[in-house]
């Protein structure tokens, strides 16, 4: 592997300055993905800026009832945090559905959001991948693509984003606090990841050199009426084949509000706005939930090996929402 330098900045400004000064630098969080990719030669930074020593490791309850999660809070700590479990259990559920205990002990909040696709072609430098090497083609498009996208893909890339946490954060309208050479700014998590288009190598809308410093989760009155359902190929320690994050608010039988997001279906966590729209203001039934899922999935374009994901996501949507509807006190 390429020899690299390693630095531990004292504060956010120094971290951003270090990265900005070096064209091939990368931030290092828990390293659970980046270090693997470095060994494989997929990523070859010559400077690692370790941000885990920065004072970004607390979870704070905000005056409005929301949460502010520091970028370097470890996944295990976030999942176990009493305020998270009480006010935003969807985050705990999504986190605990992912990876293994050891990995969650290492992985950070921001690192989780910025992890790379597990598309096998991306991870193998012997195979064509526009994301890894722009212009080489997408071997997955006509290769082994069972685990890959059904929504929002392009001929350039059919990868999916692997995070469970990101799906929950998108459902909850979370906002990133970001620091870059131009100063501080905010970006909704839903706008962090891109669809691949013609530039799958550009995965996020973060400005160059930007460092995520925190994730803010706004209060949601019905946040506790939530679920995260994840279908996977073994009982644990597997990326989603398909996942659904849902929260539901009923007024009697009528859907007052709903949050719905899908994982493992696209290059970014997929907020199901069309399905939400089809649900809001209508009397809840299982049939309505199915029609809502159909409305969202009408845009799906399955690849040769993953047509089943449409039925899978539809079934998970119905199960998630009917379960929440049954659990909500009328």
């Amino acid at each position: 592997m390429r020899a690299f330098r390693y630095q531990r900045p004292a504060d956010v400004a120094e971290a951003v300055a270090l990265l900005d000064a070096e064209p091939d630098a990368a931030y290092l969080g828990g390293g659970t993905n980046l270090v693997d990719l470095m060994k494989l030669g997929v990523q070859r930074p010559d400077l690692l800026v370790d941000v885990t020593g920065l004072p970004l490791d607390t979870v704070d309850t905000l005056p409005d009832g929301g949460l502010r999660v520091g970028a370097t809070v470890r996944n295990s700590d976030l999942a176990a945090h009493p305020a998270v479990r009480r006010d935003h259990p969807l985050l705990s559920r999504a986190l605990l559905a992912g990876a293994s205990g050891q990995l969650r002990n290492m992985a950070t909040t921001a690192g989780n959001l910025l992890q790379r696709t597990r598309c096998v072609y991306f991870q193998d430098t012997g195979k064509a991948c526009n994301k890894r090497e722009p212009g080489t083609g997408c071997a997955a498009r006509h290769g082994q693509n069972r685990d890959l996208a059904i929504l929002g893909w392009s001929e350039f890339c059919v990868a999916t984003h692997p995070s469970d946490l990101a799906v929950a954060l998108v459902a909850l309208d979370a906002v990133l606090e970001v620091y870059d050479p131009g100063g501080a700014r905010e970006i909704p998590v839903a706008e962090l990841h891109r669809t691949p288009g013609e530039q799958p190598e550009r995965e996020t809308n973060l400005p160059r050199g930007a460092l995520i410093t925190a994730v803010r989760v706004p209060p949601l009155p019905f946040a506790r009426r939530c679920t995260y359902l994840k279908a996977r190929d073994r009982a644990t320690f597997a990326f989603a084949v398909g996942s659904v994050a849902a929260a539901l608010d009923l007024d009697g039988d009528t859907v007052r509000d709903v949050r719905l997001a899908y994982g493992a279906v696209a290059h970014r966590p997929w907020r199901a706005y069309r399905a939400e729209e089809a649900l809001r203001g209508r009397p809840f039934t299982a049939e309505l939930a199915a029609r809502a899922a159909d409305a969202e999935l009408a845009a799906a374009r399955p690849l040769p090996h993953n047509g089943f994901k449409v039925a899978l996501i539809r079934n998970l949507t119905v199960r998630a929402l009917t379960g929440l509807a049954a659990a909500v006190p009328r």
Binding site: V120, Y121, K127, D233, R234, A235
Partner: peptide
């Protein structure tokens, strides 16, 4: 999972070649 074009197995690690774990 073999990719006929390359002639090798594309899921060549323990994250993508699933082996039963304790929870199974």
């Amino acid at each position: 999972l073999l990719d006929e074009r390359y002639g090798d197995w594309v899921n060549h690690d323990l994250a993508t070649y699933h082996v039963s774990v304790c929870a199974d």
